[in-house]
Simulated assay, not measured.
Amino acid sequence: MQEVNKYFEDYNVGDSFTTAGRTITETDIVMHAMHSGDFMPHHTDAQWCATQPFKKPFAHGNMTFSISTGLCIQAEGINPHGMSYGYNKIRYPNLVFPGDTIRVKVTVKSKEDHPKHADHGLITEAKETLNQKDEVVCYAEHVVYIEKKNP
């Protein structure tokens, strides 16, 4: 995996990139159910789903979020000057089904000084996970704790 050496000062509000795509499979959903213990019928019971408005099993929201996070790391690389501070406003406005291909558009939404550590700042990235129809299937705001080059 590539290393990216970017400091707080190297990020600008409005900067963006889009990841490669990844097709979600039924195996992804089953494996996530096994790892998480979430066997809700919405994800694992095709017969039950057939009686519901969505008609077929769909991906767990947190699975979509996790895969989206991995796509971002693969696209951007590892930055030794920053680390995840957390996520805000995670939403799943549309369903993801097996066969859907997702990708993530990442945009720097804001920058601010860290209130306690003058040598670091906080960057908030808006992460929009899109399906092949350009519908948002996951939205999250990722806060990155990042070192300043010139504190």
Rank of each mutant, 00 (worst) to 15 (best):
R103N: 14
D113C: 13
P98S: 07
P115G: 08
M83Y: 05
V96Q: 02
E76V: 14
Q74A: 15
E141T: 01
D119Y: 01
S110K: 10
G82W: 10
Q132G: 08
E135L: 07
A75T: 14
T129A: 12
V106P: 04
A126L: 15
S84A: 15
Q132V: 12
E112W: 03
A118C: 11
V137D: 11
Y139C: 06
H81L: 14
Y92S: 09
Q132P: 11
N79P: 02
P115S: 14
T124V: 14
E125N: 14
K133M: 10
E128R: 12
Q132S: 01
P115H: 13
L122W: 06
H114V: 13
K109R: 13
E76Q: 13
T107N: 02
V136W: 06
K133G: 00
G70M: 05
N94G: 01
Q74W: 07
Y92K: 04
N79F: 02
Y87W: 12
I123M: 04
D134L: 09
R103V: 11
S110H: 09
V106R: 05
T124C: 09
G99F: 10
V106Q: 06
H117P: 05
L130H: 13
T101V: 08
Y139E: 05
L71N: 11
E141N: 02
V136T: 12
E112G: 08
G99M: 10
A126M: 12
N88P: 01
I78F: 13
N131W: 03
N79Q: 08
S68V: 02
P80G: 04
L71E: 07
H81N: 15
P98D: 07
I102W: 10
G121L: 07
V137T: 03
T101Q: 08
N94C: 05
V108N: 06
T107S: 01
H120Q: 09
K109P: 01
A118R: 11
Y139S: 13
G99T: 04
I123D: 06
L95M: 15
G77I: 05
I123Q: 11
H117F: 12
K116Y: 03
T69L: 10
P93S: 08
H120F: 10
K127D: 09
V106N: 10
Y92T: 02
E112F: 05
G82A: 14
N131M: 04
I123R: 04
T107P: 02
K111A: 09
G121A: 04
I90A: 01
K127R: 15
I67Q: 04
A140P: 00
V137P: 08
K111P: 03
H114Y: 05
D100E: 01
L122H: 08
S68A: 15
I67A: 01
D134N: 15
I67M: 03
L71M: 08
K111D: 09
P80F: 03
V108C: 12
K127L: 03
A75L: 11
D100T: 02
H117E: 12
T101D: 07
E112P: 05
D100Y: 03
E128C: 06
I78Y: 13
I78A: 10
E125Q: 15
G77A: 03
P80H: 02
